[in-house]
């Protein structure tokens, strides 16, 4: 089994991984980070989106072995010292989640969008979320939250 070293939410991690383990499986089953969800097998739903070296990636479409040396942030690593990240706060304020299952991926993608395009507009948010499915909210509140969260992130 390959031994990999990576940083997860700021913590160094070394793990023996089977080649066939997905990164999502390493996170969920072996590191106990169950906030990263798996909702499909074909990369459509986006519930498993995390950041790998600062970029949003579908962790169910990446092997754990490929994360050797990577800096990884999951939904659990977003809030700092008990304080919600501005995007998490915006999601709560705008009722941008219902069942919460798509939420971790949705928030991680939104943080990435706002980081890459600090002044993103509504069409950019809609397009930016094309790989994240939500079945509860109808998206409007998510879009509002991303706009508010992005603004808060700009400071």
């Amino acid at each position: 089994m390959p031994v990999i070293s990576l940083t997860v939410n700021g913590n160094p991690v070394t793990a023996d991984v089977e080649p066939r383990w997905l990164l999502s499986r390493l996170l969920r089953d072996h590191l106990g980070l169950t906030g990263t969800h798996v909702g499909c097998d074909t990369s459509q739903c986006g519930a498993c989106v995390i950041h790998v070296d600062g970029k949003p990636v579908k962790s169910c479409a990446m092997l754990a072995a490929q994360a050797d040396g990577a800096q990884i942030t999951t939904i659990e690593g977003l809030a700092q010292k008990g304080k919600l990240h501005p995007m998490q706060e915006a999601f709560r304020d705008n009722h941008a989640l219902q069942c919460g299952f798509c939420t971790p991926g949705m928030v991680m993608m939104s943080v990435a969008l706002a980081t890459e395009q600090p002044d993103l507009d509504e069409p950019a948010v809609r397009k930016g979320l094309e790989g994240n499915l939500c079945r509860c909210t109808g998206y409007q509140n998510i879009i509002n939250a991303v706009m508010v969260g992005a603004k808060a992130m700009r400071g």
Binding site: Q88, R92, H95, G100
Partner: peptide, 23 residues
């Protein structure tokens, strides 16, 4: 009142407990 949801904090921080999170 449009009260913000109690459950959101755990859902937003990845600490909700869905069936596949139980081991």
């Amino acid at each position: 009142q449009p009260v913000r949801r109690k459950e959101d904090v755990r859902f937003l921080t990845g600490t909700g407990t869905y069936i596949d999170d139980i081991k």
